[in-house]
Amino acid sequence: MQTRDTFILQLRGETIGSVSSTSSMEESFQNETLRPILKLQNDLFIASFTSYIKRNKVDFQSKTLEAKLLVIDNAVQKDIKFSNTMKGFIIGLFTSNEYLKYSENSSNINKRMMSMLIERLKSQIQLFD
């Protein structure tokens, strides 16, 4: 398993954001694990959301900015199948130790993960038109 973990860490790259001795476990996990994975998987998130729009026949281009943002919120927060797929894209790049940390506090980490994903999609909303 160590070989996989080493490969995953090299693939993801450096920590994004600061981590100090005063950082909470969740904040450290966010900056050391979640941010690098979200950055690495960005193209996959974009492709998945584009597919989601097409599959669900959402006329995204004709919507107002507010309505587009709401579509993103609803897709990630309320569409369980889509949300679970997005979580899988992220969790699949955890090391064994990171998964153990995640499993101890999955509820709070899931909230952070999905919130960060929503903000990432919203910040690139122009790609979906």
Rank of each mutant, 00 (worst) to 15 (best):
Q2V: 15
R4T: 09
R4G: 05
D5I: 02
F7M: 12
F7T: 05
F7A: 10
I8M: 06
L9E: 15
V19D: 07
S20D: 13
S20L: 01
S23T: 08
S23N: 01
E27T: 10
F29A: 04
Q30M: 10
N31P: 03
E32C: 08
L34G: 00
I37Q: 04
L38M: 03
L38K: 00
N42C: 02
D43S: 13
F45T: 07
A47G: 03
S48W: 03
S48E: 12
F49N: 07
R55N: 15
R55K: 15
D59V: 09
F60W: 07
Q61K: 15
Q61L: 11
S62D: 10
S62P: 05
T64K: 12
L65V: 14
E66W: 09
L70K: 12
L70I: 09
D73K: 07
D73H: 03
N74A: 03
A75T: 08
V76T: 01
K78G: 00
N84Q: 13
K87I: 00
G88A: 11
G88H: 09
G92E: 03
F94Q: 03
T95V: 05
K101D: 10
K101N: 03
Y102S: 01
S103G: 09
S103A: 14
E104H: 11
S106N: 10
S106L: 08
K111V: 06
R112W: 05
M113V: 00
M114I: 04
L117F: 06
I118Y: 02
E119D: 08
E119N: 05
S123Y: 07
